[in-house]
């Protein structure tokens, strides 16, 4: 699903990623672990080009999205991302947070189709070979209604229906992060990227967020999770990447990595955190 080929990232003269090659297959849950500053976040953020790679390729569904010429926005719709700091939109209510992107993108597509149809109609007036019009079977109100229903369904799922119309500032960290997760899910992504989703939470709220991520994992979502929660990585991941100094030093199943690490740096890291 995602092929990362010789990915490098530099900030000025600082080499943060020094050539990463890896393939993330459909349905996999990949946990990325490693010491602070090893480039885990940078790696994850390169997967949806939130950071532009210095060199290398990110092939997502057959398209190299690291190529500056592709329209990255179209591909990002299929990649959900969850941040350490939640990043809910402060100026929007919970339900507006969830609806914003789906509504905007669908109405935009609708508008583009209408404009294209307009030109095709004009063209058809003069040309002999008539072109087919794009099928339009929705309206702006319909798009909004569907997005609202979907948002409410997702809120119901996490038991926060009653928070639909409040602003994020009134929510607890755990509630914010769970809403950030369903905000990403509302786009029906093909892969979800998590960057330390529980690191900014009070300990008593970590559980509710991890439970939701686990549920999403069990539904078959492809995931890449940067995490310091080793227990969680062991339980949920199908594969663990250990990163150090901008490289993937070791990768394996969680059992192998945690019980039988091969590389000395993996051993050293695990002995510190476990």
């Amino acid at each position: 699903m995602i092929d990362v080929i010789d990915l490098k990232k530099q900030y000025g003269s600082l080499e943060v990623l020094r050539g990463i090659t890896n393939t993330i297959r459909e349905g996999e849950k990949v946990a990325v672990i490693g010491p602070s500053g090893s480039g885990k976040s940078t790696f994850l953020r390169c997967l949806n080009c939130l950071e532009d790679p210095t060199s290398g390729q990110i092939i997502f569904e057959g398209v190299d999205i690291a190529d500056m010429k592709v329209d990255i926005n179209i591909h990002r719709r299929h990649m959900g991302m969850v941040f350490q700091q939640f990043n809910l939109f402060n100026n929007k209510t919970v339900i507006e947070n969830i609806m914003l992107a789906p509504v905007h993108i669908k109405t935009h597509d609708l508008r583009v189709k209408k404009i294209k149809n307009f030109f095709i109609k004009i063209r058809n007036l003069f040309a002999k070979n008539k072109k087919e019009l794009y099928v339009i079977n929705t309206t702006k109100t319909k798009i909004r209604e569907e997005a609202r229903e979907n948002a409410l369904r997702l809120l119901r799922r996490i038991g926060l229906e009653d928070k639909a119309n409040v602003y994020p500032s009134t929510l607890s960290g755990g509630q914010k992060q769970r809403i950030a997760i369903i905000r990403a899910l509302a786009m029906n992504p093909k892969v979800m990227l998590f960057d330390e989703p529980t690191s900014a939470l009070d300990p008593e709220m970590v559980g509710e967020v991890l439970d939701l991520i686990k549920q999403v994992a069990d539904e078959g979502m492809t995931m890449v999770i940067v995490t310091h929660e080793m227990g969680f990585a062991r339980e949920v991941a199908t594969r663990v990447l250990f990163m150090d100094e901008g490289r993937i030093v070791e990768e394996n199943t969680p059992e192998e990595i945690f019980n039988n690490p091969q590389h000395p740096r993996t051993k050293e890291f695990l002995s510190k955190v476990l």
Partner: peptide
Amino acid sequence: VDPGQLEAARALGLSYGVSMMKVVVPQ
């Protein structure tokens, strides 16, 4: 405005202009 706000909007597939107008500029 916290840069995370723009990042979250961009990560959802919204363009730079739309992200600015709907999320960053109002704040």
